[in-house]
Structure formats: structure tokens, C-alpha cells
Design a binder for these strands. Structure first.
Lengths: 248, 248
DNA sequence: TATATTATTGCAAAAACACGCAAATACACG
DNA sequence: CGTGTATTTGCGTGTTTTTGCAATAATATA
């Protein structure tokens, strides 16, 4: 088996299970521990996974608890500031959940008059602090992990909305694979959100760039704006610039 | 399970419940006490939590004074404790919003398995901390004052629900006038909530007794339980006892 | 205060790791 | 084709990390 094949295999395992054990890979791929270790190290160097004692973890897995702490808050604020520029008086905006979106909401100008649909209770509460923003919370099953509403009812309601702009956080974005996700329900949800907005902005801290997970939400071309904390000319973004994406 | 995964698991528990017990973690993660203790120590070193005798506490728990600023919190906790007695496994419960309900939710037993419908985002977030509770957030326009969803869409959705018990806070209750309210929309909302539950419990701190406002929600007879922080034989309750109300 | 629970410390075994080295293989170029 | 170079892989060695155990100390709860 070629090295590249092993690497691909490892990445597939990672995206499938969010983690791999060195010992498992030794058995599955039938090579020595050292080889696996070297493979993992090389993948780390390519910024594709996260190495820990005993194996490796998906970079996006990282987010599961980071979301609830104030992880990378500065970056998120930087992203929020950029996102605010997209919002104009009178707009109808649809937002997802997550801490990045929450930071964005906190940065909105006080006088803004707009209509916000959201699937995140916390975002709704934060939006309610603005007098001239009308807030509509889209109801349904409430996800304990991602703290947003989801399920059939949400998707039905989304289909009745026509928004000017959809703002969503992301678990993974990749220049070729586009937006991807791990959970089926969240995947469906994001698709529905995309479908009901004229334009979509993806808020994404840089460490989630260049990651592809199991389920495809949409190709990169379906996204109108990509907002990261990086400068436009940062090399990590070059592959996205090529794709004609509007990058803030 | 990898060490990093354990750490993430612990942090998730901490962020969810604001605290963890060492002994619980030992069982959940199936490792020795020493390992858990070392894990906690490492997380302390990373400045992610506080360690105390018996377990650990969330850092943000200490810095957020939200709890202590709740008006008449002791009374509300007393009410919450009584209300918890009404909840049994397998129930379908509908709740309104407000700080009293929120305190009640925090007092639910960990293992409870039930379905909760709610119009309050904050209640939904709090309920999501219980693994075996299914949470359905009823969506619609979001009220900046009362922090609950309201309006036609909410009422439509409520009409499709059949709950065993409805728990609501109240702005005013009076032995002759029953439940009353000031705002038309909230009034409509409460009527709809009452209509879809077999029984209704009203959570009410004593200072809201014997008050009648402009708009009538329902006569006192439509209420199944009245829960206050007072003892059953307190004189303020005598007029309600006469009305055959179940008083806790 | 007495008792049970929880912490701390040091230790040892097992597992995982890093490093250098050498054999095998693939590649480049005259 | 032959020779020199680079890459890949596995092995041996010593080191580090992780984990559980036991003995002792500290702390809660009655």
C-alpha cells in the first residue's frame, strides 16, 4: 500500500469517527507503529489532524467543547466585526447558532433596524437587546449538542422564509469539497438554511479551513461570502480566492 | 478512550452542569479515581476549571452573578422544589418562561426522562442539560420584554400539542378574578397554553397573590395546582383553599 | 468528635514515543 | 545499464507518558 493511500485511509477514518488510535491503524494497515507515527506526524504538518498520545483527533472534533468556552474569542470578534459590514437597514437575515454568530450579534450597531430569523435561542436572546430588530425564533426539536433547533418542523418553517442573507458558522470548509458536516440532521438543516436565503455568508475561524467531513452541505460555489479572522492576502486563503469567493 | 477525549468530556459536563463530581466521572469514564484527579488537575493547570473537594466547578459559574441577581430567588427555589414533585417519568410537560420556571428547571432530578415543550429559549437551554429530557422549543415572534415566543404561529403550534401538565409563571392571581394579565398577546398565549394541557400548575410568589389585572386569562377553577413559597396553612392562602384549589 | 469520603504522594508496570541506524526500494542521470 | 542519491520502512534502544495501587494525610458530615 502506498503512503498516500495510507494517508487517505487515515483521513477517512478521522472524518468518520473523529479519532483514530495508533494501535488500530497498525492492525488495519499492517505496518509498523513507527510508520503510522510518521504518517500522523506528516498529516499534522499538513494541518489535517491533531495528534495526541495514543492516536490522533479530527481538527473539527476540537470544537465540541470549545464552543461552550470562549475559545479563540479574539478571532471570533474579528470575524464578527467583518460580518457586521454585510448588514444593512431593512434586511431580513437568517442566522444559525454557535459562539461566532453570538459574538457577531453583540457587535451589531444599536440603531439597526432589521428582521432576524434564527434557530438559536441564545442568539434570539441576544438579538432581543436591540430595540429595532424584530426577532423570530424558529422552533422545533432542540439539539443538546449544537444548541439550535432542528428537525422536520424547522425545515418546514425555513421553507416559508425568504431572507436576504444567511449567516452560518461552520464545522468544516474545504476548497474542493465545500461545506461539510458530520451529523445528518445538521446537514439537512444547513441545506434548508442555504435554500431560503439569497446570499450566504460563512463565518469560519481559520483552523476550520481545509477540512472535509463526511456529509456534504453544499459546494463552495453556493457560498457568497467567506469570513475569517485572516487578512485577505493570507496564504491559507489563496485556494479560496481562486474559487472566486468573496472573502472578507 | 484517549486522554484528550476524557478532558473534552469533562469540560462538556462542566459547561453543561457547572460542576462535576469526581465519583461520577469515575463511573462514566470507567477509569480510576487517580486518573480523574490527574485529569482535573491538568485542566486546572490549563485554567479551564476550579477544583474543589469532591469534584470541580466551572470557571464561568463563579464569574456570572446571574443567579444572585434573580429577584426573590429563595422563594422561587422553594416554589421550584414543590413543583418538581409534580413531574413524573414519561410526562409531557409544557412550560412558559420567567425566572421562577427557570429555577424549577434547575431543580429537576438528573435522571428524569420526559418531554418538555417550552416557549422560553432560556428554559430550553437549561432543559438541554438533562440527557433524558427531549426539548421542543416552540418558535415564533420573540418578545423582548418577557423573553418568550408569542404570536399566531406559537398559538397554532400549541393547538397541536397535548400535554399532561402545563407549568406557568404568573403576573397576577386573584381568588375571584382568577388569572389575569396586562398584555393582549400574552393573554392569548396563556389561554392557548391552558387549552392544550390536561392539568395546569401556576407558580406564583406570594406577592402576586390577590392581584387582578385588566385582561382575564381564566377563572380560578381552570387551574389544577397553585404553588407558592408559603406553607399550606398560611392565612394568605385561605381564600384559595376555599376554592378547592390544590395548593402545594 | 468519630467516621466515611476524598486528596496527596511516591512508586512501579505497561504503553506509547523519539531517535538513530540500516536494509530495501524507488528514482535520476549519464 | 550502472551508479549514486533520495525515500521509505522496520528494528533496537532509551525516554517519556499514562495509569493504577497502596499508604498516608486532609476534609466533610453526622
Amino acid at each position: 500500500m502506498l503512503k498516500k493511500e495510507r494517508h487517505d485511509f487515515i483521513m477517512r477514518q478521522i472524518n468518520l469517527h473523529n479519532r483514530v488510535l495508533t494501535s488500530d491503524l497498525v492492525q488495519l494497515l499492517n505496518v509498523s507503529e513507527d510508520t503510522i507515527r510518521r504518517d500522523l506526524q506528516e498529516l499534522v504538518d499538513e494541518n489535517l489532524l491533531y495528534k495526541v498520545h495514543g492516536g490522533a483527533l479530527s481538527k473539527s472534533y476540537h470544537s465540541s467543547f470549545d464552543d461552550s468556552t470562549v475559545y479563540a474569542r479574539d478571532s471570533k470578534i474579528a470575524i464578527g466585526k467583518k460580518a457586521v459590514q454585510l448588514i444593512k437597514d431593512g434586511m431580513v437575515v437568517l442566522t444559525g447558532g454557535g459562539t461566532t454568530i453570538l459574538e457577531f450579534v453583540k457587535l451589531l450597531p444599536q440603531g439597526l433596524s432589521a428582521t432576524f430569523f434564527t434557530i438559536s435561542p441564545l442568539v434570539a436572546v441576544e438579538l432581543a437587546k436591540y430595540n429595532n430588530i424584530e426577532v423570530i425564533l424558529i422552533g422545533g426539536l432542540f439539539s443538546k449538542n449544537s444548541q439550535v433547533t432542528y428537525g422536520g418542523q424547522v425545515i418546514t418553517q425555513l421553507s416559508e422564509i425568504k431572507a436576504d442573507l444567511c449567516l452560518m458558522g461552520t464545522s468544516a470548509i474545504h476548497p474542493d469539497e465545500g461545506l461539510t458536516d458530520t451529523y445528518w440532521e445538521i446537514n439537512q438543516l444547513k441545506k434548508a438554511m442555504l435554500a431560503c436565503a439569497k446570499k450566504t455568508a460563512v463565518l469560519c475561524i481559520s483552523e476550520k479551513l481545509d477540512i472535509a467531513l463526511r456529509l456534504r452541505v453544499c459546494p463552495i460555489e453556493s457560498i457568497s461570502y467567506l469570513i475569517t479572522e485572516l487578512d485577505l492576502d493570507h496564504e491559507s486563503l489563496s485556494r479560496y480566492v481562486e474559487k472566486q469567493l468573496n472573502i472578507l
